[in-house]
Amino acid sequence: MTEQPYQQVSILLVEDDDIDAMSIERSIKKMRLANPLVRVIDGVEALAVLHNDSIPKPRIVLLDLNMPRMGGLEFLEAIRNDEKLNDTVVFVLTTSQSEEEIYEAYKKNIADYIIKSSLSQDFNQVLKFLDHYWQLVVLPS
């Protein structure tokens, strides 16, 4: 179908909780995914790494909403108003089930809103879903 060599999708994880971050890393390791993962702790750092192109394209952002300094919704606002970054594909990954936040997030053109609903559930399923996703979908490069 395509002659281009398969390009691994980079993941930018914006998450302030270490255990959640570890949980993602653990799931990636467990599923033996080769995707490069960069983790930052809030929106400010996320903007910084996106701007200095340290995350190669194609890439997705896994975004938590409740974070210190710059939260997820503020970060979304910032990249959607940024010409260079406004094509960024963002998945929200959060504990918040607030309808207002879901509504606000989708208005800022996120790809999906994933709720870390149950404690027992690890991120294996989420990663499985993402793996399928980027194998099927063409992302902006």
């Binding site: 909780d17 949980s23 918040s96 404690l119 690890d122």
Partner: peptide, 17 residues
């Protein structure tokens, strides 16, 4: 209740691991 959930998740994850 929201903020209490986050550490609880952490505890649960750690126990699982």
């Amino acid at each position: 209740s929201h903020d209490l959930k986050a550490p609880l998740r952490g505890i649960n994850q750690l126990a699982l691991w």
